[in-house]
Write a protein that binds this DNA or RNA. Structure first.
Lengths: 213, 213
DNA sequence: GGTGTTAAATTAACGATGTTAATTTAATTA
DNA sequence: TAATTAAATTAACATCGTTAATTTAACACC
């Protein structure tokens, strides 16, 4: 018994519920393990209906990621008001890590899965827009600190600094996600690992490393 | 026209050729995009033959990874003779990164794909054996440097240091693999990113950071 | 109020996948 | 020569992403 002719609002609602169902399942069991049919069944629709809202599974995945990117960006945005620049950078990293470790499957989707080079065509997110793009925000803080000569002078490129800070936190989080439960490694506590990484890399980048001791 | 009754040597040879074909295809096009039938066709066998040598696709994948882990470990092993401890640590990181970036799909298989917690049952590799386990080697160098009091004294746990060094390099490499071609980010040169990370994190960990300037 | 038109959903179907069952082939053993 | 058995094959199954064809029902107009 198919209903008919929906308002634009209803269409939007259905689209959102598809995304939510997809995310829940992706996060629960991994992307490849979830079929379009399952996603559809979860919201009591037939599989083909999904194709009226998304071109294919990849497009649906991209939509899920988009929402998550936005959420991450808005969470990050709250930290931008911290007055002390270095504290702001530290809080930024910590908040990012908490997001990653609380939503490991989201994080895997977003930053650990090589996908078609971030389909700029499909994605809704405008790169560089600090409202939407967490990386753009990181660049902003780092640039401020860079302009205030807080970093070692031989580093000429502030974007390189941002990328290094990002990679450091990403390294800790993604290793934890991939191998955190692996008996092969006797992992130290994740907090210890994160803290040491953050302190070490900052000490190595800052002009006055003792300022964070 | 099926041949028949193989010597144990022949069996081993076929097994190896399956692994090689699988690796080649996995690396070329990614794990999920490659079917058992394709792997089989590449060596002129039917798909079911693979199942006489590997329980399923995952077991075949594990076998591919095992070989790669061994290769990585043996490559690392050559560096262990460098006399200077810090140079050895640096060379270790560099060699690791070169491996990761030259064989991104291998690397993805090995360190970026959450799989059943490193099936200690299935894997051939003995964790801790420095002949087979690159991480065990890293621990060894780091412990030596730790015992020589090269690191900051407030860091009490040498394994934590090893894990931080690993995460730093992994962060740079895995971001490059996932997003290196993404127009969203204006990446600095990968060499720059690697070098800055290595210098920064070492400076942050070492008792005498100026020793690497 | 009936009649098209059209959007939204459905069922049916296609080709490909991982995997299993049943079968064939041929070398070894008795 | 006959029986056994390992190694391979072909056939088949259920499921996947996806497309085509079809049905359902709300609206616009006469």
């Amino acid at each position: 018994m198919p209903p008919k002719v929906k308002s634009l609002e209803d269409r939007e609602k259905l689209r959102a519920s598809i995304i939510d169902a997809a995310r829940t399942l992706f996060v629960e069991r991994g992307i490849e393990a979830v079929s379009m049919r399952e996603i559809a069944k979860k919201i009591n629709y037939s599989a083909t209906t999904l194709y009226h809202h998304f071109a294919d599974k990849d497009a649906l995945l991209q939509a899920v990621c988009d929402e998550d990117f936005l959420k991450l960006a808005s969470r990050m945005r709250e930290l931008m008001q911290l007055p002390n620049l270095i504290e702001r950078i530290q809080a930024f990293g910590k908040s990012y890590a908490i997001f990653a470790l609380r939503h490991p499957s989201h994080y895997r989707l977003m930053f650990m899965t090589p996908r078609a080079p971030c389909n700029l065509d499909i994605t809704q997110i405008e790169p560089g827009n600090t409202e939407q793009d967490a990386y753009a925000q990181l660049k902003l803080v780092v640039k401020e600190a860079f302009d205030a000569d807080l970093f070692r002078p031989e580093i000429k490129n502030f974007e390189l600094i941002a990328q290094t800070l990002w990679a450091a936190t990403h390294g800790v989080c993604s290793l934890e996600i991939t191998l955190g439960n692996d008996p092969w490694i006797q992992w130290a506590e994740i907090d210890e690992r994160f803290n040491l990484m953050q302190r070490a890399v900052l000490r190595g980048l800052l002009l006055n490393p003792e300022s964070i001791d």
